[in-house]
C-alpha cells in the first residue's frame, strides 16, 4: 500500500465536504440571481445572519439547551430500561418468556401515533416529551442488546466455563464484550430516533425548544429561521453519529472492522 502523502490526506478529508459546499454555492447563486424567491427559500447568507441574530439574543442557546436536555434525559431513561431488559431477556429464559412477546407487540405500534394520547395524559409539559423519546429509544436498544447477547459464540462461553470463570467473570469478560458490537448498532439507531421524536413532539406541542422555535418562525414567515432550525438538526445528528463512532473505535478496537485506518 502507498503511504498517504499530505496532499492525499487533505483530499481524503476534503472530499466528503465537496458536495455540500457546491450545493451551498449554487443555492446562494440561485437566490442572489433572483431565480428563487427568498420568501420560500432564504439564501445561505440570510440563514447565517438569522443564526447570528438568534445567537446574539441568546434565544438560540436557550432553545438548544432545552432540546438537548430533553433528548438526553429521554435517552437515558428509555435506553437504560431497554438495555436492562435486553440483558435480562438475553440471560434468563424465564424473563424472556415473560416479557418478549408483549414487547414485540408494543414495538409494532408507531410511537408517534401516541402523541394525542400523551398530550391528554401529560399536557404539553416536559413529561410528554420525555415519555415519547424514552419510548422511541427503548426498542432499538432493547432489540439489539438482546440480539447481541444471543449471538455470543457459545464456544467461547463453554471455554470460559471450562476455565473456571465465575458467572460475573463470564458476563464481563465474554458475554458483554461479545454483545457490544450489536449494542452499538442499537445505540446509533436510537440516537437517530431520539432527535426525530423530540423534533416532532416539540413541533406539535411545546413552549420552548428547537421545534418550537421553528414553529414560531413559521407563524411570522421567518423562513430563514425555519431553515436554520433544520440545519441545526442536521448538525446535531451528525455530531451524535460522530461521537458514537469515536466510542465504537475506542471500545471495539479489537475488531478489524472498526479499527481506525
Amino acid at each position: 500500500m502507498m503511504r498517504p502523502t499530505p496532499l492525499g490526506r487533505l483530499r481524503d478529508t476534503a472530499l466528503p465536504w465537496l458536495l455540500p459546499v457546491v450545493i451551498l454555492l449554487g443555492w446562494q447563486a440561485a437566490v442572489s440571481a433572483g431565480l428563487v424567491s427568498n420568501r420560500f427559500m432564504p439564501a445561505p447568507l440570510d440563514v447565517v445572519r438569522a443564526g447570528w441574530e438568534a445567537g446574539r439574543t441568546g434565544e438560540l442557546w436557550t432553545n438548544l439547551w432545552v432540546s438537548t436536555l430533553r433528548a438526553l434525559s429521554g435517552f437515558a431513561v428509555g435506553g437504560g430500561i431497554g438495555f436492562a431488559l435486553g440483558l435480562a431477556n438475553g440471560l434468563s429464559r424465564l424473563s424472556e418468556r415473560l416479557t418478549d412477546t408483549s414487547v414485540q407487540m408494543v414495538r409494532n405500534v408507531p410511537h408517534l401515533s401516541l402523541i394525542p394520547l400523551v398530550i391528554l395524559w401529560f399536557g404539553i409539559g416536559e413529561e410528554a416529551k420525555l415519555f415519547l423519546v424514552a419510548l422511541g429509544v427503548f426498542f432499538p436498544i432493547y432489540a439489539n442488546t438482546l440480539h447481541g447477547i444471543r449471538s455470543v459464540d457459545p464456544a467461547l462461553v463453554e471455554m470460559g466455563r471450562v476455565y473456571g470463570m465465575s458467572r460475573t467473570e463470564l458476563f464481563t469478560r465474554v458475554v458483554l464484550p461479545g454483545a457490544l458490537p450489536s449494542i452499538f448498532v442499537g445505540l446509533r439507531y436510537a440516537l437517530g430516533i431520539m432527535w426525530l421524536t423530540l423534533i416532532v413532539a416539540e413541533t406539535i406541542s411545546a413552549s420552548s425548544g428547537l421545534g418550537y422555535m421553528a414553529m414560531q418562525a413559521r407563524e411570522f414567515m421567518l423562513v430563514d429561521v425555519v431553515v436554520l432550525a433544520i440545519l441545526i438538526y442536521a448538525a446535531l445528528g451528525k455530531l451524535a453519529d460522530a461521537l458514537t463512532r469515536q466510542l465504537e473505535r475506542a471500545c471495539l478496537a479489537w475488531n478489524p472492522a472498526y479499527r481506525s485506518a
Binding site: 471455554m159 476455565y163 470463570m165 465465575s166 465474554v174 464484550p177 471495539l252 475488531n255
Partner: peptide, 19 residues
C-alpha cells in the same frame, strides 16, 4: 483456539488463571 477476540493476547492467557 477459542480466544476472546476482544482481549489482548496476554489477557487471553490470564483467562487460564481465573480467580
Amino acid at each position: 483456539p477459542r480466544l476472546l477476540p476482544w482481549a489482548r493476547v496476554v489477557d487471553n492467557v490470564t483467562v487460564g488463571l481465573s480467580g
